[in-house]
Amino acid sequence: MTTSIPIIAFSELLLVTIQGDVSDEQLEALRAELCERIQVTRAKGVLMDISGLTLVDSYLSRTLVALTTQSRLLGATLVMVGMRPDVALTVVDMGLRLEGVNAVATLEQGQALLRRLALASGQEGGHGHHNT
C-alpha cells in the first residue's frame, strides 16, 4: 500500500506537494482526491509544489495537464510551483507539451497569480493569463 500525496487546505487554497518519485497509482489517486477536495472546500486555486520532483515522464506530464483541466472544470485554477531546471529541460527535450498549465517559480508568486486571476475573473474561468 503506497502513501497518498498530501493535499493541504489553507486560506481558500489547496496545496499539493509532490516529493521525489511518485508512482502512477499515487497520481491516479491524486486525481480523484483533488476533485473531491475542490468540490468540498470550494477552493478557487490549487498550488502544486513540484520543487521536489526530480524525474518526469510522459504519464506524469499528462497527469499534470489532466489535473489542470479538471480543476478548471470545477472552478479552480491550478498553478505549478518551482519546477527544477533539469526537469523543465527534460520536459522540453521529450517534446512534451504542458498546454494550459500555469507555472510560477515560488509559492508567493503562485498566491499572487491566483489573487490576480480571482480579481480578473467573474466573466471567465480565469486561466491562461500568465502566458503559459
Partner: peptide, 13 residues
C-alpha cells in the same frame, strides 16, 4: 526556443 520553453515551465517568462 528550448530555453524559453523550459523557463516558462519553471514559471519565468
Amino acid at each position: 526556443l528550448k530555453t524559453a520553453a523550459a523557463a516558462r515551465l519553471m514559471g519565468a517568462q
